[in-house]
Write a protein that binds this DNA or RNA. Structure first.
Lengths: 206, 206, 206, 206
DNA sequence: GGCTAAGCGAGACGGTACGTCTTGTCTTTAG
DNA sequence: CTAAAGACAAGACGTACCGTCTCGCTTAGCC
């Protein structure tokens, strides 16, 4: 060509970065995190291994960075719906959570993440802060509004209640202790914020 | 064990078996599951690698079998104390759970197990059935007794309530979303079976 | 056999012995000596490994014992034909030798033997004495008769001449330095005992 | 080298290559070819196993490549002395050959080579062409000069005569059919090119 | 004709080496 | 001058055999 374009190094490096992100995510869902190799990511991304090692410290770091980047882009709003009925709203939230975890690609990816952060505290912190925390905060906010309108006793700690909701779903999903379906989601919500008098036989007797 | 290949087990060397178990557990707590190698286990146990591969299919299988065997031996009774006060009893159970997870060696081992079973469904099933299930069942039994004496509303599903108790603890431990201390254990119990009227603002208002 | 350990041979199972012999020979021609394993011989013969190790000291010992036993059975007489024409007779001998070495199964087996005896002096001795020596002796005997009837100069050492005949054929076969065909066999005989005056230009000039 | 896999050799590390060559040769003479292992070569050379497997296909290939390289360096001239007396000259050649084969380190190495090339045709070809052929060619050249000056009958084929000289020495050495000493070397030369009339009793009678 | 010592088939055992794979660093080469 | 391509040292992988060692079970031969 007559006019050769000047090589823009910053743009090129961005190309490599996103190619690596894409390759990392694709490979993880295709063969599972354990079977992903740095070499495979480099090959798939059309990139030298050194280009990966220059910016990331390990396979884990690459894949999570990719995951976080993807999530951040797709983030959108995390405001929970507020129909005025906190039980109905939370049922919706937990049903969504259950549905997402049931989706195979998601399930695989989340399990890989959960497994991996068990031996990398730094990654763990980042994943929790950037993927999980926003979700929890949204629930806490919704619970606070419920408290304001008297749908939740003032004594209840919204932060604890949020964990009471998320914890069992997470537990059942991760350990497969039972079927993870909408019915379970509803049960958790009902036992936590829905059933009057669950807290004590006395109140039920009232 | 279920995780072993069904060869002729009658000729199996008990000496080798227990040496491998011990080596596997020791190494896992010493260097962490990820850094354990089959070769190291074999060397430490004074055993040929083939003797490991003859009876187990992977590093994971060895370590879990070791863990399960150790737990089975130490099992003893799983009956929860029944002081008549279900809230107090459950506080005790969760405080114990929290304390155990706080113990470094235990923490490491449990995290390794949890991470590993994410990519081995067979192991996952076994771990859940043999390590977790008994614990859950004991809590369910205790809850049922509470129901019989009117400390828990008849409408509550003891199985769900048990997960409401365990789930949040597990979640906070695994993801380190917050401090895992006795206070948190108490909070979970209180919000789940202790606080009258948590279930609804109405009942609290009564 | 000399290569076996002197246990109590009276109880020895003939069935096992011959099954091992057969398996050893078959496997050697099938996959080559290097790829034969004691375990494979045992399996093929339907025999425990210990039964082999009880009577032989190594894979080599088994295969050679098998080979020697087979040869001894098939031995018959080694008398060379004596048509009165020593050149014609030796051409026949060498042509036969060449033809046998050209036969693939034989070629493989002989090469395996030759390779193996390079690192087992005891086996080497036995192979030479029991497989090679009779052949050489037969040639020497024929040469002596030729000498008696004046077809070979009295000064020639029949033992040396025999090696002059066998050596080149063996050399060309083992190292594949050239085509091993009847023409070569004839050439060797002719240059050694056939061509008048090969020995010196003077005699040729006579 | 012909025994290597045709990867991109331009990037190859000369340091690794020669360290491997040296280690291979040293180990072979120290413990014998059979007891040499690729792992030991790698360890001794301070090299990863993969670096060996990247460029050679087997232990044999490494050792021979090392041997060939060493021989090529040390090659020098292969011109045989020409004193005018072909018998004396050839006696010298064969005595040298005998002496070299009698030297223990050499004996071990040559036997190992000879054994090994029995199950690797490619290696066999290379060894013959690069180690043996030059030697044979030198003898053939000397014989041709002898023919020109009438010390060898024109009818004799120098190539065959060369094999008549080398073959028996090789045969006796490899199979240990008898003492390999200078006397034998002389005998072979005398019976082949030295003794007038060995070819026929008639010429002797003249 | 029963006892007993052996040989037997089987195969687990502690080992060694195999040839492959991946890691993270270092080096070459082409654009 | 940079970055792809990929060689390198290291070391674990899971497999194949080694030669030794029990196991029960024939089976031979001496009492």
């Amino acid at each position: 060509m007559a006019t050769t374009r000047p090589v823009d190094a910053s743009r090129r490096s961005g190309r490599a970065r996103s190619a690596i992100h894409r390759a990392a995510l694709d490979l993880t869902t295709e063969v599972g995190f354990t079977n992903v190799t740095v070499e495979a990511i480099a090959a798939r991304a059309g990139v030298g291994k050194q280009t990966i090692y220059r910016w990331w410290s390990s396979k884990g770091a690459v894949v999570f960075d990719a995951l976080l980047a993807a999530n951040e882009n797709a983030a959108g709003t995390l405001d929970l719906p507020d129909t005025g009925d906190v039980v109905a709203d939370l049922r919706g939230v937990l049903r969504t959570m259950v549905a997402e975890l049931a989706e195979p690609a998601n399930d695989r990816l989340q399990r890989a993440v959960t497994a991996e952060i068990q031996h990398d505290r730094a990654l763990a912190g980042e994943v929790v802060e950037r993927l999980l925390r926003p979700q929890v905060d949204a629930i806490v906010a919704r619970l606070r509004r419920a408290q304001e309108v008297g749908q939740l006793p003032p004594a209840a700690d919204p932060a604890i209640v949020a964990e009471l909701l998320i914890g069992p779903v997470f537990h059942r999903w991760l350990l497969r202790t039972g079927p993870l379906d909408p019915a379970f989601a509803d049960s958790v919500v009902d036992h936590t914020v829905g059933t009057p008098g669950l807290g004590s036989a006395d109140s039920a007797a009232v």
